[in-house]
Design a protein around this nucleic acid. Structure first.
Lengths: 187, 187
DNA sequence: GTCTATAGCAGGATAGAC
DNA sequence: GTCTATCCTGCTATAGAC
């Protein structure tokens, strides 16, 4: 209840992050944000041009966190194991921060090369997959792997699996992909 | 410009479907819908209880269409080929009707057994996958297959692939999954 | 069964006082 | 740099006349 009484960009982002985690991107409104900070909505515009600017920061932040989680999970593992670990870490991230993950993968203007944090994430996955397929910059394989992870995460988060549960489904597909994408050097 | 001047549920749904295809679920508003039909918004409430009722009909309709597309594409094919064809038909549907597809896979309350059209769609895919894995009601394999298709479709539709394009990525993962999920009877 | 009119709510963003 | 006070726009839904 004690307000710092000093509004900084960092404090705003932190409060916005809390709203995002709690209620998704649509819960990050200028009114709610101001209310959380004990401030009037108009005060926020001294620090951020508009709502989109706030969301952009949250998106970059989330991208960095996911990238860090993947790097942490795969450190020191042989290629195939690293890919499996990355899959699990990816799903774990989506489960623990569903709304933030949702923000990360929001529809964007097609053919818009997103600069910044998103690129690093892509490069990380590209390297992981490339180590398994034995081919650098293997876009096709990376896209396939990413699609599976994203699809599973979103289907689960949106409740499509129902109470029947996907038990075993994730492992099943992950294994099929790791095997199917692996480079066979000794047939 | 010539208005039928007679409002029927069918006409409303048809107009709503047009709005959905053009601008997504959020474009299906009572105002826009009434405007399209040359009618006042309040008139719609004589035929539908509220906006949610309209969207529910659109969702069921879309589910039926997708199911029909998959059935059409896989008719008479051997299991593995049928699964490949289903994958292509699924992606094709998502590409040709992105907004309708998005409505179909919208977040819903978890553990809510959705009755009706959605169940049939699931059963169709379950049968296709089961024929390949050699195991009836193979939930795990079906979930994996579905996750891949949904993930690829949504990543592509949301523009995540950028201009680099996923060329070959879809085939790569689809093949890996069909192979990986296939039942080996003669090793 | 359609109309006019309006209630009610929520959201982003701005002007100008202090 | 924060405040008060609005403005504007968008939406769903209802009341009551015709």
């Amino acid at each position: 209840m004690a307000y710092p009484s000093k509004l900084t960009p960092e404090a705003i982002v932190e409060a916005a992050s809390g709203l995002l985690r709690a209620g998704g991107a649509e819960a990050v409104g200028m009114r709610a944000l101001a209310s959380t900070l004990g401030v009037q909505p108009s005060s926020l515009y001294r620090h951020f041009a508009d709502r989109a600017a706030v969301l952009a920061v949250l998106e970059d932040q989330t991208s960095l966190e996911l990238n860090a989680a993947l790097t942490r999970a795969t450190a020191g593992l042989p290629p195939a194991d690293a890919l499996r670990a990355a899959g699990h870490a990816y799903l774990e991230f989506a489960r623990s921060q569903p709304h933030a993950y949702g923000l990360l993968l929001m529809p964007r203007a097609p053919y818009t090369a997103q600069p910044g944090a998103g690129q690093d994430l892509w490069k990380s996955v590209l390297a992981l997959v490339g180590a398994v397929t034995g081919q650098a910059d293997d876009t096709a394989a990376t896209v396939a792997f990413w699609a599976y992870l994203h699809g599973f995460a979103t289907l689960e988060l949106s409740g499509q699996f129902g109470r029947s549960g996907p038990r075993g489904g994730f492992e099943r597909g992950l294994e099929a992909l790791v095997m199917g994408l692996s480079h066979k050097d000794t047939p």
